[in-house]
């Protein structure tokens, strides 16, 4: 028996909105420690990794490891039927080919039940190595979203460069070019408005903006985002989910021919 109740059901809605343009099907890998999802886009250019600890659910029950394959289209249709302040319970019995969703309003007056057929999804899992990054930059998530959106008006690719002077985003195309520089903040009122730059080594990488704009669909999940960069390696974009999980996106760089 698998059962997990998320008090803030809106978090599930936001997670699905964040990945539905990248992947069509996902496997929920459920164990006693929590739920994880790993899925790649069809071109194998980017990967989404969701990790949710069991302590984010009340109750959480997973008698034995179980993989639940779901089509995001059906999942998206169902979670849209939940109100933002509803709790969402996910239930699956062993040996059945359905997954159940129960939505409950905060006062308990309204409950809704939905069932989705499980799918057998053949997904490749990649081993993601522990990486010591050259630079790790934490910034407001809306700021990152704005930069990606603005830069994509100029070109298809963005160059991200971290030096002791800060982080620079640049793009160029037929129309012209643009650069945006961010420096480490000195004094800010709210921690979530802070720009924090850890630099071990200067780094300079190029990425396709199309994918970064998909990743920023996760902005409603968290006020902050972390970019982890290493020379000639995939970028890792991390959105924390409350204090119990995260959504990470990995993006393969563009490299000089």
């Amino acid at each position: 028996m698998f059962e997990a109740r998320l008090i803030q059901g809106s978090v599930l809605k936001k997670m699905i909105d964040a990945i539905k343009d990248i992947v069509t099907d996902i496997n929920l890998d459920c164990s006693s420690t929590g739920i994880s999802v790993q899925a790649m886009d069809s071109g194998h250019v980017c990967l989404v990794l969701i990790e949710l600890g069991s302590d984010g659910f009340e109750p959480y029950r997973c008698d034995r490891n179980i993989t639940l394959g779901l089509g995001l289209k059906a999942l998206s249709v169902v979670v849209r039927c939940a109100n933002n302040d509803d709790s969402i319970t996910i239930k699956a019995q062993e040996g059945t080919d359905n997954i159940n969703f129960v939505f409950e309003s905060p006062n308990g007056e309204k409950t809704s039940q939905f069932e989705i057929k499980l799918m057998d999804i053949d997904s490749e899992h990649l081993g993601i190595p522990d990486t010591e990054y050259d630079s790790v930059v934490k910034m407001p998530s809306h700021e990152f979203q704005r930069i990606c959106r603005d830069m994509s008006q100029l070109g298809d690719s963005i160059v991200v460069a971290c030096t002791k002077d800060g982080i620079q985003f640049s793009a160029s195309g037929d129309m012209g070019s643009g650069k945006i520089n961010l420096r480490q903040s000195s004094l800010v009122d709210k921690e979530e408005d802070q720009i924090n730059i850890e630099l071990n080594d200067p780094v300079h990488l190029t990425f396709a903006l199309r994918y970064l704009n998909y990743f920023t669909k996760a902005t409603p999940l968290s006020p902050t985002v972390t970019l982890s960069l290493k020379a000639e390696s995939p970028l890792c974009v991390t959105y924390p989910i409350g204090d119990f999980g995260s959504m990470k996106f990995f993006l393969a760089p563009k490299i000089d021919d």
Partner: peptide
């Protein structure tokens, strides 16, 4: 010009 790499180039299949 830049060409797009794939993740399988960096991360091994499990």
């Amino acid at each position: 010009d830049n060409s797009q790499t794939q993740l399988t180039h960096f991360f091994s299949k499990k």
